[in-house]
Every structure is written in structure tokens, then in C-alpha cells.
């Protein structure tokens, strides 16, 4: 069952640390967000492989937005 990787803060995407097809373990950093100059890693909520990345570096995101999907 696919799992959404959601933003837990509002800010911008600073770095994308994984790409579609990568296999990741629960807790791996997928994306690093930035808000008010704080760097906040977004971790994989489950193990699996990345099937979708919906943002680019520099994208503005809101809390709750789906950033990536793990299949």
C-alpha cells in the first residue's frame, strides 16, 4: 500500500535526498525543508521504494502537502 510522505511544516524544499526508484528504510531522510532558516528533514514514514516525488528543490510547500510517495 503506498505511503504518503507529507510536509510537517510550511516552508520551501531545500534539498531532495532521494529519487524515484530508490529503496528507502523507515527513518531515512527523503527531503529537507527550510522555514525561517531552520533546516527540517522529512523522513520516510515506512520502508519501500520511492514511486513519486511531487516537488522540486525550491518549491514552496504547506503543512500537510504530499511531497513524495513510497510504494
Amino acid at each position: 500500500m503506498p505511503t504518503d510522505v507529507a510536509a510537517h511544516i510550511t516552508g520551501t524544499v531545500w534539498k531532495i535526498e532521494a529519487k524515484v526508484g530508490d529503496s528507502v528504510l523507515e527513518g531515512d531522510t527523503i527531503i529537507i525543508l527550510e522555514s525561517m532558516k531552520m533546516e527540517m528533514p522529512v523522513e520516510a514514514p515506512a520502508s519501500g521504494s520511492i514511486t513519486e516525488i511531487r516537488v522540486n528543490e525550491g518549491s514552496a510547500v504547506s503543512e500537510g502537502d504530499v511531497l513524495a510517495v513510497i510504494g
Binding site: 510537517h8 511544516i9 525561517m36 531552520m38 527540517m40
Partner: peptide, 10 residues
């Protein structure tokens, strides 16, 4: 709550 965490910068 997570959304308040960046306020620590301020």
C-alpha cells in the same frame, strides 16, 4: 507541535 518548531530560529 512541528509547525511551531521553526519559530525557534526567532
Amino acid at each position: 507541535p512541528m509547525p511551531s518548531v521553526p519559530q525557534l530560529t526567532l
